[in-house]
Nucleic acid binder design. Structure first.
Length: 505
RNA sequence: GGCGCCGUAGCUCAGCUGGUCAGAGCGCUGCACUCAUAAUGCAGAGGUCGGUGGUUCGAGCCCACCCGGCGCUACCA
């Protein structure tokens, strides 16, 4: 089994937002989970650097474009580690390996007869880095966002014959109903294709910053002809001396936001087909994490620096909140206050306190020694594990976490139902008390393993407090894996109370 | 305009192919318990499942229309 997962490459000339952190964190959960199941995984993220604006800003600051790009790529490279995302490779489109491959890739499309020359013309707003149609402008003919007149640009570009791929794309969609998820995104993409496809330009002239086309060095590859290709190019040089394409392509799963659905679900597969590659295995389109009802983005002006939230609650807590607050795949409302509530109610009170009370009882009633006693386990942990795995196979991150949490709640209920403090009063209950304590430790052990993909920092701490193996193999999500051990001490709070819930916003 | 989605308890949302589907979590109230990070457990809270009219023995779940909100309708990360 192979599982290759990608996030979009982020536009470098901006600051990482919570939305970017969201995509990266969720993707990381999916990869970590597959890894626990013994699947051969590869996780890719990175940045897109070849935008006109990057070059222009660099010029304004008197820097070489590459030098400027090197500088602004830093916070992006730090994003994944800061939210506990473990990526296998961080790609930059200015990497030599990427540039080399893009040229090779485009050459194949060219050789296949899918590229032709034509004139592209339109009103272009430099601030937006986009062509504008007249109805997108203000009555005065200005860009509504930047209030400046757009420039009329007319240039000869190369176009990709997307229109020639309509039938093949429809056939692809028909034979693979799960190519795009969720299903409503599949429908959206398919109906777009069915509506007729227009060719799109893949180059820009007169720009020194970018990847020169192999057959015409005076033009550079335009955004999608450059950026999308990263998903394959990375495999050719991420591991020096190794070509990972055979290993991970087409086992690719692309995670992306709904705003770039068309490019990923239509352009990309067509480009791959043209270049002689298999389409990716799956595209998962997620929605927006709306903060206080507004989309989190730089343009909305309410960007939250995810690093600030991490400093207050910790990366695991932030991951947890992002996965649980809204149903993955749909848009959803969330709030900063919600982070605090999740942290206190669920992480601290439900999970953290469960560990505290469990370890405290083992320490107090059994001097830290765990023995298999005589008591039926309250949970079918194997079934729970199967449920979680099945949900994650469907990218149902939110539902998976929900399922684990039912286990957490069930164990808390079990404590109340069995009342170990009552059992401890009478030696006649020894075997039962042992059994109850064992079931708690055993359940918590399995749940820790099940949670490891979501809470990579916390799960090992739970296992350590329980004196259990740090092995995170998915097979350990079942009953009876806990070892009879000694030396269990009352654990320190997993998620301590936070003093200042205010610094978050 | 066309295609599609959504509107379910104060809040955020589950509800697959129609018949325990009127639910979960949070918030709120009361009770229980003491192992635990003043944590946990239990119970309750009486929501015309946006509106109207249909189909059906029976409809949040099917159909029509209406009201309200939204997405896509092409070259923007």
């Amino acid at each position: 089994m192979r599982f290759y997962l990608t996030t979009p490459i982020y536009y470098v000339n901006a600051t990482p937002t919570l939305g970017n952190a969201y995509t990266t964190a969720i993707a990381d959960m999916l990869v970590r989970h597959q890894r626990q199941r013994g699947v051969d995984t590869f996780f890719l993220t990175g940045v897109d650097e070849h935008a006109t604006k990057v070059w222009r800003v660099a010029e304004e600051q008197g820097l070489e474009a590459q030098e400027y790009a090197d500088r602004i790529a830093v916070p992006w490279r730090e994003l994944a580690p800061r939210i506990n995302a473990e990526v296998d490779f961080f790609i930059r489109t200015s990497d030599d390996g990427h540039k080399r491959f893009v040229r090779e890739f485009l050459q194949r499309i060219y050789d296949n007869g899918d590229v032709y020359q034509d004139v592209y013309a339109g009103l272009y707003c430099v601030g937006c880095e986009a062509f504008k149609t007249e109805d997108e402008l203000t009555p005065d003919g200005l860009c509504p966002d930047h209030l400046v007149p757009p420039e009329w640009i007319e240039e000869t570009n190369y176009f990709f014959r997307l229109s020639a791929y309509q039938d093949r794309l429809l056939a692809l969609y028909d034979e693979r109903p799960d190519l795009v998820r969720p299903d409503f995104r599949y429908n959206e993409a398919r109906s777009f294709i069915a509506g007729g496809l227009r060719d799109f330009s893949i180059s820009r002239a007169g720009q020194p910053w970018g990847i020169p086309l192999p057959w015409d060095e005076s033009q550079v590859a335009y955004v999608w002809a450059d950026a999308l290709v990263n998903y394959v190019s990375a495999l050719t040089y991420a591991r020096p001396g190794e070509d990972l394409r055979d290993r991970y392509w087409p086992a690719a799963h692309h995670v992306l936001g709904k705003d770039i659905l068309r490019f990923h679900c239509v352009y990309w597969p067509a480009m791959l087909l043209s270049a002689g590659y298999e389409p990716p295995q799956q595209l998962f389109v997620h929605g927006y994490l709306l903060l206080d009802d507004r989309k989190i983005s730089k343009s909305a002006g309410n960007a939250v620096d995810p690093l600030d939230l991490i400093d207050v609650y910790g990366a695991d807590a932030l991951r947890y909140w992002m996965a649980r607050a809204i149903s993955f795949g749909h848009d959803g409302n969330a709030s900063v206050e919600g982070i605090r509530e999740r942290y206190e109610n669920e992480l601290a009170n439900d999970l953290g306190n469960l560990l505290s009370r469990t370890t405290a009882m083992v320490a107090q009633y059994r001097e830290g020694s765990l023995r298999r006693g005589d008591a039926e386990p309250p949970l079918d942990l194997g079934a729970l594990g199967a449920d979680v795995a099945a949900r994650l196979d469907r990218f149902d991150v939110t539902g998976a976490l929900d399922a684990v949490w039912e286990g957490v709640r069930a164990l808390n209920q079990y404590v109340t139902a069995e009342a170990p403090w009552q059992l401890a009063k009478d030696p006649a209950n020894d075997a039962r008390l042992d059994g109850v304590l064992y079931n708690l430790v055993d359940g918590l052990t399995a749940l820790a393993v099940a949670l490891a993909a979501f809470l990579p920092e916390t799960a090992p701490r739970i296992l350590e407090a329980l004196q259990q193996s740090d092995d995170l193999s998915w097979g350990r999500v079942r009953n009876g894996v806990a070892e009879e051990v000694g030396g269990i001490e009352a654990a320190r709070p997993l998620f301590p109370r936070i003093e200042l819930p205010q610094a978050a916003a």
